[in-house]
Design a binder for these strands. Sequence first.
RNA 1: GGAGAGUUGGCAGAGUGGUCGAAUGCGGUGGUCUUGAAAACCAUUGUGCGGCAACGUACCGGGGGUUCGAAUCCCUCACUCUCCGCCA
Length: 424
Amino acid sequence: MLEINKLRENVSGAIELLKTRNKDFTSEVNSVIAADDKRKSIQVELDATLAESNGLSKQIGDLFKSGKASEAQELKAKTAVLKEKSHALKEEMHSMEKQIKEILYLIPNVPNLTVPAGKDDSDNAKIDEEGTMPDLHAEALPHWEIADKYGLIDFELGVKITGAGFPVYRGKGAKLQRALINFFIDEASDAGYEEVIPPHLVNEASGIGTGQLPDKEGQMYHTEVDNLYLIPTGEVPITNIYRDVIIKESEFSHKLCGYTPCFRREAGSYGKEVRGLNRLHQFDKVEIVRVEHPDNSYAVLDEMVEHIKGLLRKLELPFRTLRLCGGDLGFTAALTFDLEVYSAAQKRWLEVSSVSNFETYQANRLKLRFKNSEGKSQLAHTLNGSALALPRILAALLENNQDEKGIRIPEALVKYTRFDYITE
RNA sequence: GGAGAGUUGGCAGAGUGGUCGAAUGCGGUGGUCUUGAAAACCAUUGUGCGGCAACGUACCGGGGGUUCGAAUCCCUCACUCUCCGCCA
């Protein structure tokens, strides 16, 4: 969530930038400031009341000790009124604090200056495009038919075992999946990221820490008996490694990567958008996470995008980079780049990575700080990106690399798959 | 699942009703000494909120209560650990 004191420094500026999200947060911002003003005035009164009451308590103690019990009794009577008053003020304080928090939860991150205004994904700004479009033969198939033809993925079996959106990968399909995971992890390790294997279920505090709770509760699977959530992305457990942590300024950067399955309820999704591997309830992803000094975080964001482009080049997939417009920007992000690969048989661009700088929005909830050069605690910046999400990569690989012989495996992957063609 | 113990500052760990924002040690920072470093010694060192500041106030896992006064007593919730049981 936003830091209220930072918000106060430039209220109108924040309101203006928030407008690029294609929504007006003027009333939320104004009401949170008003609520904070009220909170302050209550606190001044409360502090004064408590100060008086603390002073009396001290006197009473001294009087008892020096044996002046009757004088002490007199003072005791006076404290009753103060106690009542401070109780009432405390209650008001709590309700104001709660109100402030609730409004802050409704306000998304302030977009970076470079975020284009826009309504939805059609307004995202294309930055670049790279790679050669495959020239498919006439009988080219969409990936779900390829997967079926070569026995790589059994969607029906997943339906039996669990339900729609939980595919069973088998044979070379499973091996290809595992190869991609290892390839992505190795590439991240080579780029200096420490590999972690985090828990796949998280508690409520972690969900709040990275911003999935309370806003997006319905998107996560929830285990009621234990009150745990299945992770929708590795971002949640990996970033929460840094919850309630104060790091040393000299220790920047923190670079972590990890493979996790991801679980998403995807309530409300339907139609051809979700066909095959396009949208699943369970999928695999390698995530890269950074904790950075505020002065450095945007350079790091570019570096992360470059890392991901490198992966796509090695996989020989045509891709493009988008700068998300305000309307498509995630709630907690200040700036996001999406990378999309072209899936030739579907003739569609598929999002395979989303790389974001959250600035201090997550760090504020996480209480993730560092000691700055003045010795003061300051919120760090968090960033993360998919490097990469597997299913759509798989879809593009299958569709783009099909020829008369079968499916060609890109060179860089062969040492992981230990086969270079998928044939019938 | 059963029984017990615990949760205190960056870390370790003391503190059972006022003199406790909290001993002590480690760590951090500054200094003395030294050619330099180490050691030793001295000083300093938590966070939030309000305030220009002085200062005030809150925080000893969370919430509530008793009391003039709570880290300390009571209730409640969460978590951690140990032993037993079950189990990969």
